[in-house]
Write a protein that binds this DNA or RNA. Structure first.
Lengths: 247, 247
DNA sequence: GCTTCGGCTTGATCCACGTCAACCGGGAAT
DNA sequence: ATTCCCGGTTGACGTGGATCAAGCCGAAGC
């Protein structure tokens, strides 16, 4: 497939902003581990950037698949729906993470991806990604690792849903968010939740009231300070202690 | 990497049995969609076949990863353990399915794979699979689809664990087994469970007593006939009707 | 043959979380 | 400023599945 990306021009700031090689998320995202030269070849893939407004769908169940998406900024949830309307949130995604891997299997998306705040994504045409990863060893390897990491993450969620009690689940959830915010240079003790109690509940297999009560309980016990979507972790070890203790 | 596989010899039945191109699971497994010529190149990868006795580990958490495994015959479970000993079964795998994808991410396995009956697997050295899939387009594509399918499957399990009631979970589980047995040419109405009630329970996020009661209930209602590990499905539609009905 | 043991079933009771309902508070619309 | 509405909190109560406990059955060992 020919390279359809225009060559960089000296003074174009806009071009600089649309490429992987200068993206400040490159160490978290697909470009991880690539050489400078390889990075520039990856730049050619990222033909489209798109803004997704809060509440809008990036893709829906059944949409035909032809690209995966890297989150440049913002916050998403993915979910699957049962015929009777029950929703299961399968994940929350933030900057540098990839969306759309579910679509490779059938060439149609099998879940919905919805922006929880105004967001910006890079579309990566999948056929071109495959073809480039046939040439760039490290890209191929890294892409495989990303897919595998998603599988491992899913196993963690199964563990959470299958064996943990409500407060354990919420503690695990908060610690996971904290750790991912840290990796992005944000505070690991203080953050705004982008999702509602109901969405957290759906992800954790709980009802929103149970989530709310668990938040209140954590606050009573001094582990966190919480006011609506604003969370401050006061005692990380306290939260960690809630994990891995048998019922 | 050199080809270490001996050349086929006219009369060698054992050689014929060790390659993908004549494997009767090839349409379910990695070779799916490959041409005859491509198949023969894949044959060269499968250097080792291994027998795993019932109860033995194919790999354990922490083992270093260098191959994925195709199940040639038999039945496995994969699980993850919490420090306090709680177990979550993350899946049951049968002939033609791949094991070990979890290890790609960190180059160490993150779950255990245990044979539930005497089994036989083909080890596929991962570095060589990657290198071959850089050359064979269709192999690359198919491997990506397999990984993606695993992610989609995991989403289904999350849905099950997050939103379904006990009897729905068991019905979904039985229908899933039935469908996979069908794809392998076995009866879709009658089969032996290779796993215990406790393992089913762990997979479904239930206790073994609850699983047992659900089996009994299905039997009372005429959906199935069950005696220990032997299950006969009498009314597929009855089971399907248990799904997708709100609490 | 008898015994043992692991897996399964079934009953009685308990409890974590769901359900239902009231209320609160902040942001948006008018 | 008033109203509306959505998301969140909290309380009272109900229940599905967990827990505890007893007994059953079939395979394996002696």
């Amino acid at each position: 497939m020919p390279n359809t990306q225009p060559l960089n021009q000296d003074l174009s700031l806009t071009v600089i902003k649309t490429v992987c090689s200068t993206c400040n998320l490159r160490e978290l995202c697909l470009p991880f581990g690539l050489s400078l030269e390889e990075l520039e070849r990856l730049d050619d893939l990222i033909s489209t950037r798109r803004r997704i407004k809060r509440g809008d769908y990036l893709y829906r169940v059944g949409d035909s698949f032809d690209a995966i998406y890297a989150i440049r900024s913002g916050f998403f949830k993915t979910d699957v729906l049962l015929e009777d309307g029950r929703e299961q949130v399968t994940g929350f995604q933030m900057g540098g993470e990839l969306l759309g891997l579910d679509g490779i299997s059938t060439e149609h998306h099998t879940c919905n991806a919805i922006a929880l705040e105004d967001s910006e994504i890079c579309a990566i045409p999948f056929a071109r990604l495959e073809s480039l990863s046939r040439e760039i060893h490290t890209l191929q390897r890294h892409f495989h690792k990303v897919m595998s990491r998603e599988i491992v993450r899913d196993h963690g969620v199964m563990m959470l849903l299958g064996t943990m009690r409500a407060e354990e689940r919420l503690a695990a959830f908060l610690l996971n968010l904290s750790q991912r915010f840290t990796a992005r240079g944000f505070s690991h003790t203080e953050f705004y939740l982008r999702m509602t109690r109901e969405e957290i509940g759906s992800y954790l297999g709980l009802k929103l009231e149970t989530v709310s009560r668990a938040f209140s309980r954590f606050q009573e016990e001094g582990h966190i300070a919480v006011q609506q979507k604003h969370v401050r972790i006061l005692n990380v070890d306290g939260l960690k202690a809630l994990l891995n203790q048998r019922a």
